[in-house]
Nucleic acid binder design. Sequence first.
DNA 1: GTGCGGATGAACT
DNA 2: GTTCATCCGCACT
Length: 201
Amino acid sequence: MPKLSPGFYQQEDVVALARQLLGKQLYTCVNGVLTGGIIVETEAYNGITDKASHAYGNRYTSRTAPMYQAGGIAYVYLCYGIHYLFNVVTGRENNPQAVLIRGIEPLEGKEIMLERRNMTRVLPRITAGPGALAKALGIDKQLNAKILTGNEIWIEDSTISHHDSQIVASPRIGVAYAQEHAFLPWRFYVKGNPYVSKLNR
DNA sequence: GTGCGGATGAACT
DNA sequence: GTTCATCCGCACT
C-alpha cells in the first residue's frame, strides 16, 4: 500500500487522527531489515494545552523540538531510562501535537522481532505496549525526527476500516500527573485485539 | 551542578 | 498487586 502523505499527518485534529491511525501499517527498515505491523492502539497528545503532553505550556527544548515541526515525522524519546517510545508528529509547524503508537500486530519480519525481543515464539507481549513495539521494530533515538515518507520508518495506508463499534476510546495510560486531562478519552484501540496493552482499561 | 521523577515492562510475591 | 531496572530531561540553584 502507498505511504501516508504529508497531508494526512498535517490534519489539525490530533484526536481524530489517532483514531484514523488504527489499522494502518507501521514499518521500519533498520540495518537493511524490514519489520512492520498493523497499528492497533494509539494515544493523542494535544499540543500546548494538554497537561500530559511534553509540549504543554509551549515547552520547547531540544527533546521536544521535533513536535514543533510540521506533521509527518517521528518523535522518539527515552522513557524511564529504559524504553524508547515512538510518536507520530501531527498538525502544522509550531502546533506541537503527536500520537503515541502503543500497540501493533506483527506482519513482516517476525523472526527479527523475536531476536530483538529475546523471545522464541510470537506472544502478544512482543509488540503490545509502546516500549515493546519500539524494541521489536528496532526503533531508538537514531530514528528521532526522521520523516515518515522516507525509507527508514514509514506508515502505509490500509484497506482495513474499523467500524466505530470495533473501536474503544479510553483514558490514556500512565498520565495521572496530568490532573483533569488524565481522564480525557484520547486513547484508542481495536476491541479484543491481543496486541493491545492493558486490555482491561 | 544537583535532584526528582517519568507517555514502561518484566519479574517477582 | 508490588518492585525495580536505569537514564536523562528538565527545573532550579
